[in-house]
Amino acid sequence: MKRIGIFGGSFNPIHNGHIALAQAVLRQCALDEIWLMVSPQNPLKQNSTDLLDDHLRLQMAEKALEGVEGVKACDYEFRLPKPSYTWNTLQHLSKDYPDCTFSLLIGGDNWAHFQRWRNWQDIMNHHEVIAYPREAYPGTIDVPLLNVSSTEIRQRVRAGKSIEGLVPEAIVPLVKKYY
């Protein structure tokens, strides 16, 4: 069985913290791959007004991950009903990829409120949940806490500030163009 980590998010935009985290979890948890699941609509962020088009976020994620071994951008949720409930995604993935097991990678902030997620008990019963630390929220694994956020990147672009070192060099022009 191939072990796949599902790292869902808006990736609005993807940044170096996402990539470093995915690489650390890949190594530490002995997963075969990590799929960055670009989410079309997070049910807990339905009021978000600055979410870039799904395909543009996917395009940036794919470009950012070129040459990153074992980590790939994924548009699987684009074909599923919205909002994108993780339980629904995991149900479909398990059916479509019967030779794979899926682990869910979430932040410590989400882990602290995991019981708010739709069908969270079923997720726990059928999938490994790997929680990484976020500021003020511990995780279930010990990986570096990287203090960078997509919100900060969008704000820096709007303010005309540098985003060098925050996002992969390959996508700096795209981030500046779209945000």
Results as ranks from 00 to 15, higher is better:
Pro81Cys: 03
Ile19Gln: 08
Ile163Tyr: 01
Ser162Cys: 06
Asp122Pro: 01
Glu33Met: 07
Asp122Phe: 03
Arg118Ile: 11
Met37Ser: 13
Arg3Glu: 13
Gln91Pro: 00
Arg27Lys: 15
Gly67Cys: 11
Glu66Gln: 15
Ser39Glu: 05
Glu169Gly: 00
Arg134Asn: 08
Ile123Asn: 08
His55Met: 11
Leu105Val: 15
Ser94Phe: 00
Ile163Lys: 08
Arg134Glu: 11
Thr140His: 09
His92Trp: 05
Tyr179Leu: 13
Gln23Ser: 12
Ile123Phe: 03
Asp96Pro: 06
Asp122Met: 11
Gln46Thr: 15
Pro168Gly: 05
Val38Tyr: 04
Gly139Cys: 03
Phe7Tyr: 15
Gln23Met: 12
Arg116Cys: 10
Val167Gly: 07
Gln41Asn: 10
Leu51Met: 15
Gly17Phe: 02
Gly160Gln: 08
Thr86Cys: 04
Leu56Cys: 05
Met1Glu: 12
Tyr132Asn: 04
Leu105Met: 13
Pro144Phe: 01
Thr101Leu: 12
His15Ser: 10
Pro83Phe: 08
Asn147Ile: 00
Glu77Phe: 02
Ile163Ala: 07
Asp109Pro: 10
Gly160Tyr: 07
Asp54Cys: 01
Glu135Gly: 00
Val25Gly: 03
Pro83Val: 10
Glu164Thr: 14
Ala112Val: 04
Val157Asp: 10
Tyr132Pro: 00
Gly108Trp: 00
Val167Tyr: 03
Val25Thr: 06
Asp32Val: 11
His55Asn: 13
Gln115Asn: 15
Thr89Tyr: 06
Tyr85Phe: 14
Leu52Tyr: 01
Arg3Leu: 12
Thr101Cys: 12
Phe7Val: 04
Val68Ile: 15
Arg154Pro: 11
Pro133Ala: 03
Ile123His: 05
Ile34His: 05
His55Gln: 13
Leu31Asp: 08
Lys177Thr: 14
Leu52Ser: 11
Asp54Ala: 09
Leu93Glu: 05
Leu80Glu: 07
Arg116Pro: 00
Gly139Ser: 09
His15Glu: 11
His18Leu: 06
Thr89Phe: 04
Gly165Ile: 06
Arg27Glu: 14
Phe114Ile: 14
Ala136Asn: 14
Ser10Thr: 15
Arg158Phe: 06
Gly107Lys: 05
Arg27Trp: 00
Arg79Ile: 06
Leu105Ala: 01
Val148Gly: 03
Cys29Thr: 09
Leu174Gln: 14
Arg118Cys: 03
Leu51Arg: 12
Asn125Leu: 12
Leu58Arg: 02
Lys95Thr: 12
Glu62Arg: 14
Leu58Ser: 07
Lys177Tyr: 12
His126Pro: 04
Ala30Gln: 13
Leu52Trp: 02
Tyr85Arg: 01
Tyr76Ala: 07
Cys74Thr: 06
Val129Gln: 06
Cys74Ala: 06
Pro168Asp: 08
Cys29Ser: 13
Thr86His: 02
Asn47Ile: 01
Met1Lys: 12
Glu33Gln: 15
His18Thr: 10
Arg158Asn: 12
Gly67Tyr: 09
Gly8Glu: 09
Asp109Glu: 10
Ile163Leu: 05
Glu69Thr: 13
Asn47Ala: 13
Val148Pro: 01
Gly107Ile: 06
Trp87His: 14
Pro144Ala: 12
